[in-house]
Every structure is written in structure tokens, then in C-alpha cells.
């Protein structure tokens, strides 16, 4: 073409910025994780490399916290999905089209409110001498004792990450909305059949996006657990943070961060494999319908979306 410089150079500043301030720091942390803490005054040294820090990571305390994090991560993601799915469906299909913009805006306001402030809001609500607790006691219940437990962290993360589940699901349902579902109904399929055989499979990209958008940041969560979890609701994010901020053991903290990333990737891979196997029979029975030769542009574009 007519340009003198290759066009991809436009992206060079972003490349450089991300290389210097993302790739290099993360690489340095990976390198630190093979080092050690030489003395109480130094944070790390890398003159002798070993896997000792990784052995240290799997101490009983850390392991318990890890189990806790994994539990909160998986249960929290499942709850977000179960709570968010009907809401997204309601917003995209059931609500009158004129009100959809408003509903999307309503879901976004909490999403854009300061994460920390929202979480503090829950601390105020759940506090044993807050108004909810007072009201419950007036009716004859025990004072609220949920704050500083794993339950409070679970509530907090479900709350904090729910918009990240609802928005992609809404976008996905919105895309499926319309003629295809009408066709399914006209061909005699009931509401449930239409939902499970048409709407849900076609919303798959949105479901995957929602689950990943919730699960990955949730596993690394630091704020929710700090504000609501207390001593009992520890998460890995806090352990990593404390190694860098209070214990000043950067080598061990780095190893924990690396293990956290590996566990997130591994669980996502395992989850994907499980879903693949579980849906194998369903997909096999669907192939006849969706894999049929495309005769119209509409069904061709649908096929594209399914394979995407």
C-alpha cells in the first residue's frame, strides 16, 4: 500500500509500555520465586536458585488458605451464575425493550461504584451493632454474627462480581433474542425446551465470558476478604500481600503469586474439560440440528456464532 512505515508501528508504544511495566515485572517475580530471603533486613536474594520457596508454599497454613480460596472461588462463581442467569434473561427477554437501557444502567452503577466502598457498605450492614442486627434482635433473633467469617466473604464476592456475570450474559441473550426462539416455539417446543436447546447453547460465548470474568479476579481477591473476612476468612491474595507488605519476604510472596496463577489456569482448564465431557452427549444430539448444511444466510451466521 501507500504507507512508508509499517502500520503496526502504531501499536509500538503500547507494546513497549506493557513489556516494561507488565511482562518485565511479572518475569522478575517469577525469578524471585526461585530465590530466598537472606536476612531479616533484605527482602530477597537470587544468587542461589532453588524450588525451596515452592516447598514452603505448601505448608499446612498456606494449604488451608488455598482450599478456602478455591472453595470461595468455585461456590462464588456458581452462585453468581445461578443468581445472574435469570436476571440477564429477564433483562434481555422479559423486560419491555424500552426499559432495557435503564436496567443495564442500573446493573452498571454498582459495578462502577468504588469496590472498596461497596464492600464497606456490607461491613456496615452486617455489623453486629448495625441496624440490620438491631432489627433482627427486635424480632427476637440472635445478633448477627456473620461478619469476619467465610460466609461474609462469600456474600461479599458474590455481590462484588455479580455485575461481571450479568453483563456478558445479557449481551449474549440479547443476541439470541428474536426469530430463532419464535421459530422454536412455532415448531411446538415448550418454553423449557426452547431455553435449553436454543437459547442456552447460543448464549455459550457469554456464559464462558461471564464465568471467566468472575472466577479469575475472584480467586485473586484481596479487598473483600480484608474488609469482611477477618482472621477466619483468609484468601490467598491476602497471604501474598502480607509477604510483600509485612513479612518482607519477597521470595516466598513471589512463589505464592506464581502458585496462585498456576492454580487459576489449572482449575480453568479442568473446569473446561469437565464441561466438555459433560455436554458431550448433549452436543451429539444437537449436531443434527445445528450442524445441518446452511441453507440461509441466517443459519450460517448462527453456526458461526456457535463455533466461535
Amino acid at each position: 500500500m501507500r504507507r512508508r512505515l509499517p502500520g503496526f508501528l502504531l501499536a509500538a508504544p503500547a507494546w513497549a509500555w506493557l513489556a516494561i511495566f507488565f511482562v518485565a515485572p511479572v518475569a522478575m517475580v517469577v525469578w524471585f520465586s526461585f530465590g530466598y530471603k537472606p536476612s531479616i533486613f533484605a527482602t530477597q536474594a537470587t544468587d542461589k536458585l532453588s524450588f525451596d520457596r515452592y516447598a514452603e508454599v505448601f505448608s499446612p497454613t498456606f494449604f488451608a488458605t488455598f482450599q478456602n480460596t478455591l472453595w470461595v472461588g468455585i461456590v462464588g462463581t456458581v452462585l453468581c451464575f445461578l443468581i445472574g442467569l435469570p436476571v440477564a434473561y429477564w433483562m434481555a427477554v422479559k423486560a419491555p425493550p424500552s426499559r432495557r437501557g435503564l436496567l443495564v444502567a442500573l446493573v452498571m452503577v454498582p459495578f462502577w461504584t468504588n469496590f472498596l466502598v461497596r464492600t464497606i457498605g456490607w461491613q456496615v450492614i452486617l455489623s453486629p451493632d448495625g441496624w440490620l442486627s438491631t432489627a433482627l434482635q427486635a424480632v427476637g433473633f440472635e445478633p448477627l454474627a456473620i461478619l469476619n467469617t467465610r460466609g461474609a466473604v462469600l456474600l461479599g464476592v458474590v455481590y462484588n462480581y455479580l455485575p461481571l456475570m450479568i453483563l456478558p450474559l445479557y449481551v449474549a441473550f440479547d443476541r439470541v433474542n428474536g426469530p430463532l426462539r419464535e421459530a422454536s416455539k412455532d415448531l411446538g417446543a415448550g418454553k423449557w425446551t426452547t431455553f435449553f436447546r436454543i437459547t442456552l447453547p447460543l448464549a455459550q460465548p457469554g456464559i464462558i465470558a461471564g464465568v471467566l470474568l468472575v472466577y479469575i479476579p475472584l480467586m485473586g481477591d484481596y479487598i473483600t476478604a480484608t474488609v469482611l473476612g477477618g482472621a477466619k476468612g483468609n484468601m490467598v491474595g491476602q497471604l501474598v500481600a502480607s509477604q510483600f507488605q509485612t513479612a518482607q519476604n519477597w521470595a516466598l510472596g513471589s512463589a505464592m503469586a506464581v502458585v496462585l496463577i498456576v492454580v487459576i489456569l489449572a482449575t480453568v482448564a479442568i473446569g473446561a474439560a469437565i464441561v466438555w465431557f459433560v455436554t458431550l452427549p448433549i452436543r451429539a444430539s444437537h449436531r443434527l440440528v445445528i450442524g445441518a448444511p446452511a441453507t440461509t444466510p441466517a443459519s450460517a451466521s448462527i453456526r458461526e456464532e456457535v463455533t466461535a
Binding site: L18, F21, A24, G220, G237, V240, I261
Partner: peptide, 24 residues
């Protein structure tokens, strides 16, 4: 490659960015 890098940046938990940037 670039999209891969962007994806990596956006899925890395914030806490990992944070603890990497401090020593850097």
C-alpha cells in the same frame, strides 16, 4: 500476539500486578 498480550494483562489478578510492580 498483541491480543494475546492484552488478554494476559486483563486476566492477570490485580494482586499479581501489584506485587510485581512494587519490586520493579
Amino acid at each position: 500476539w498483541f491480543m494475546g498480550l492484552l488478554l494476559l494483562v486483563s486476566v492477570t489478578p490485580e494482586i499479581v500486578d501489584a506485587v510485581s510492580l512494587l519490586p520493579w
